[in-house]
Design a protein around this nucleic acid. Structure first.
Length: 298
DNA sequence: GAGGCGTGGGA
DNA sequence: TTCCCAAGCCT
């Protein structure tokens, strides 16, 4: 067998190393257990979009107990999903999950579809979530490109600290080239690389001393060059419409029935901003007007 | 394609 | 305390 151009990055070596590490270090997350349903995986993926695992766990448990199937959720008003979403953040995800459950019932007989094409057609399901569900719930071979995977690839393969702001074609091709040929192995590879990024190759403090592929890592080999790309944008929060919307929605979430406008007025001090945010919540369908001056969850 | 969209916690 | 970031999606 001829020597590879870059023996450090033989795919088989990376596969074996990462898969071996995953076998020993994978977290025992509820949605990964053998008995977990495809619906359970879908629910977890919606909740995990931009929200840490630790905060998702308890909500996922109560959610799945209350709505063990898509039909169970679809049978309730979407407002119940928003209420049960609690403080996970980005509550439009709750609305989309409810809409996805409805679509599963109406278009797929109540069973979560298994193909990428059908999955990505569901509300709130983008490229990542479609690939993740097809891979994790159905064992298929897909490029699963989330923030963890992108960071691991940027470092180990690209030799840089962070990936570009948005996935590039080159990144996608690189990930595809590295995907194991075997379907089952590819599915495990996808979750294993994600887990490595989540537990070891983290954004702020990578634990290279615990990393199974440290010896293969180009970023490490290059001496950990500092990030020199465009500024990575951090979102402001205090005083933004997002915070205002959150305050308003919290009032409705914590109330049994419709609330009077005065309750919302007390939740935010700036009149113009409060009105604008209430209007946007109504437009999003997160809030409905139940009377001349009363509002409720849908 | 850039910007909007929640919330909480660790460093 | 402040800053950064956490399994994205949609317009």
């Amino acid at each position: 067998m001829p020597p590879a151009a870059d023996p450090d990055l033989q795919p088989e070596v990376l596969h074996d190393t990462v898969l071996g590490w995953y076998a020993d270090h994978a977290r025992d997350l509820a949605w990964r257990r053998p008995g977990a349903s495809a619906w359970g995986v879908v629910v977890s993926e919606f909740m995990l979009q931009q929200t840490p695992v630790a905060r998702v766990l308890p909500v996922w448990e109560t959610w799945m107990e209350r709505w063990p199937t898509p039909a169970d959720l679809a049978a309730e008003p979407s407002g119940e999903a928003v209420r049960a979403w609690g403080r996970l953040g980005y509550p439009r995800r709750a609305l989309r999950l409810h809409a996805a459950a409805t679509a599963v019932v109406e278009e797929h007989g109540g069973a979560v579809p298994s193909s990428y094409a059908e999955l990505i057609a569901l509300p709130g399901v983008g490229d990542y979530t479609a690939a993740a569900v097809a891979s994790f719930a159905f064992g298929q071979r897909h490029v699963v490109l989330d923030t963890n995977v992108r960071r691991v690839h940027a470092r180990v393969l690209g030799g840089v600290e962070f990936p570009a702001a948005a996935p590039t074609r080159a990144e996608r091709d690189r990930a595809a080239a590295l995907l194991p040929d075997d379907e089952a192995e590819a599915a495990t590879w996808a979750v294993a690389v994600m887990e490595l990024g989540a537990l070891v190759c983290t954004a702020r403090a990578p634990a290279c001393e615990r990393c199974p592929v440290a010896d293969l890592c180009r970023w490490r080999a290059a001496g950990y060059p500092a990030y020199d790309g465009p500024p990575r944008k951090v979102q402001d929060y205090a005083g933004t419409d997002r915070q205002c919307r959150g305050r308003l929605l919290a009032v409705l979430r914590d109330s049994e029935g419709p609330v009077h406008r005065s309750r919302l007025d007390a939740a935010w001090h700036l009149d113009d901003q409060r009105e604008r945010c209430l209007a946007s919540l109504l437009a999003d369908g997160l809030v409905v007007a139940t009377g001349p001056a009363t509002y409720a969850l849908p």
